[in-house]
């Protein structure tokens, strides 16, 4: 359901602030209007624009060198807060395809894989080294998911670890629902047994529900 992620060459922008939450990534009121075409414009708006609506020149992704960056090196606990999945799609609409951080909010991290965004967890030391490299050079980083490696602008290669099933799904763009429905009979059989094992789960009043 999304474009597979294999290999990416891009400059890497740096947003060092910790705890960038999903409210900051995309304001919730932007999600009520159904204006999904503009969601990329709203991504990180509190940081990206000044009060008068003009661009904040100090915001890293507004700087010429990082304007078109598809890789973001972020502060710890990136994407903490709410479960809103448009936090991922808004960043993708901005052009990002890969986020590197010491840690991520758990739900945001899971949502990344549902949309073809690659989140990479690295130790604080590794993140700091990548930041130094990204700031020192205008060359591109290469993220290779087949090899699980990042080649920095300076030419250093670092290897990252990622769950094998997550990696496979990103490489192939596999759809979870389609995969799980192959086990439909197993699910039905489990539920049938569960009705005897835990009848109380299945007792919530259903009388008023239309067949």
């Amino acid at each position: 359901m999304f474009a597979p992620f294999t290999r990416l060459s891009s400059r890497a922008a740096v947003l060092p602030q910790a705890n960038i939450d999903t409210d900051v990534i995309i304001r919730i009121e932007r999600l009520t209007a159904g204006d999904s075409a503009r969601i990329g414009d709203y991504a990180l708006e509190a940081l990206r624009y000044r009060e008068d609506g003009s661009e904040n020149p100090e915001f890293p992704l507004n700087q010429p060198r990082w304007r078109d960056a598809q890789i973001l090196i972020a502060g710890a606990n990136f994407g903490c807060g709410s479960s809103r999945e448009p936090a991922v799609t808004a960043l993708m609409a901005m052009g990002l395809r890969c986020i590197i951080a010491e840690s991520f909010g758990d739900i945001f991290y899971a949502n990344c894989f549902q949309n073809g965004m690659l989140p990479i967890r690295f130790s604080a030391e590794n993140v700091a080294a990548l930041v130094a490299d990204a700031e020192a050079s205008s060359s591109e980083f290469v993220v290779d998911l087949h090899r699980c490696s990042i080649t920095t602008a300076a030419g250093c290669e670092v290897v990252f670890t990622i769950d094998p099933q997550r990696r496979e799904a990103l490489l192939s763009g596999l759809d979870d629902i389609g995969l799980t429905l192959r086990h439909a009979e197993t699910i039905t059989a489990w539920q049938q047994a569960d009705r005897t094992r835990r009848p109380w789960i299945w007792m919530a009043d259903t009388r008023e529900i239309a067949a």
Binding site: I107, Q114, I177, Q191
Partner: peptide
Amino acid sequence: AFGVGTSESAHALATQTLRMRKP
């Protein structure tokens, strides 16, 4: 009990399950 994104919610609506690693 835990929060999920829209994709996982759709997965649960379609299958009454989630694909997960134990926390």
